[in-house]
Write a protein that binds this DNA or RNA. Structure first.
Lengths: 195, 195
DNA sequence: GGAAACATGTAACTGGTTACATGATTAT
DNA sequence: ATAATCATGTAACCAGTTACATGTTTCC
């Protein structure tokens, strides 16, 4: 039983396969959905080799499925051992990693900028985060409609989505409030210093 | 004039040097301060080569400063060209990068976990973010005491810190509220399902 | 004498992205 | 025919981390 050190993408894959068997292509599509924001940008070129590695470590099994109207696909299923590894990972300590934020480094230098061109970027940023928020709210709506109060019971896979989508909504709302606060300051400044 | 493509750390360095000349060692210390969270984890091994690169591209200049009671240090100053490059970067579009969140991937799989060991991790996580919030609040307090209403004038370097520290405070408060919400659900579940 | 803080770097590795390569099937 | 979607992979590159390497000065 070849033991490997599982990467974060590896655990992300196991986390999805714990709900239902999927192909590599399905996994990428799943991770690209708005409410799966916390999986990061999944790339085929990272998922396929990682699935092979998980297979070598016997954390997943695979079989070829023939489809009608589509090419064949390789569907992966989490193994009992994989599930066990995932479960012990969930309750293990999580290292804190502060990530470099390009936008906030720019904000740090905002005292050097003209308010007008800066406002264009802030409004564009705001627009993007409004879209994100709308997408998360739609996901939560859908979950609540379909599951009602059963979500809180914790024993169904949708419980995880319920918690993470609520995090996404809270995050985006707070971020938008801050963006609007900065935009108001920039607008005030732009009025006082025209062109 | 050797042209290079400047990395994000490169801009982070320019952003600090725009305020005041610093050595590599100073830059790392500056980036490690709590209120500089958005710079990420600065490592000496990344800063020193990047400073050399910025020097080759004539975005910064350096000179050796002899100190009393300490080893000599190489102090870097942003060049007029470097300042110009920084200023045009600030008002340029910022690519959106969704980062993989280890903690939220775990939350996504929380339906597979026992509430009790999960609660230990959540409480530890909460403790850490309470500390972060306290540090940011102290920074804001200090800025407000020292600058008063002059902060909003936008023409002083502290304006950038004022905006980013407010973002940090908003982020941590919202995050803590969500953590407490999840903790309450887990506690309810732990009571119903003892051991 | 040794730890801690100050100070600057190189080398090896790793996680992740971009580019490349191939091929089936369906819809236009 | 050709574009779009489905489907799976390899190769090259880049950013960032960890480990290594060296040396000064101060404080205990």
């Amino acid at each position: 039983m070849a033991s490997i050190n599982i990467s974060l993408v590896g655990y992300a894959i196991l986390s999805l396969l714990a709900k239902t068997p999927l192909s590599g292509y399905d996994i990428v599509r799943e991770m690209k959905k708005p409410h799966s924001f916390f999986f990061g940008q999944a790339q085929f070129s990272q998922i396929y080799p990682e699935l092979a590695r998980l297979g070598e470590a016997e954390l997943v099994t695979s079989r070829i499925i023939e489809q009608q109207g589509k090419p064949d696909k390789k569907v992966y299923t989490i193994s009992p051992f994989g599930l066990q590894v995932l479960q012990s990972w969930i309750i293990a300590p999580t290292p804190i990693v502060e990530t470099r934020s390009e936008f906030l480094i720019k904000v740090h230098s905002l005292w050097l900028a003209d308010p007008q061109p800066a406002l264009i970027q802030f409004r564009e940023h705001e627009r993007h985060h409004r879209e994100q928020l709308a997408a998360y709210e739609a996901s939560l709506e859908e979950i609540e409609q379909r599951w009602g109060s059963r979500i809180r019971l914790m024993t169904t896979p949708v419980f995880g989505d319920y918690l993470t989508v609520n995090r996404g909504i809270g995050y985006e709302r707070e971020y938008l409030a801050w963006l609007e606060w900065v935009i108001a300051i920039l607008e005030e400044r732009a009025r006082q210093q025209p062109q």
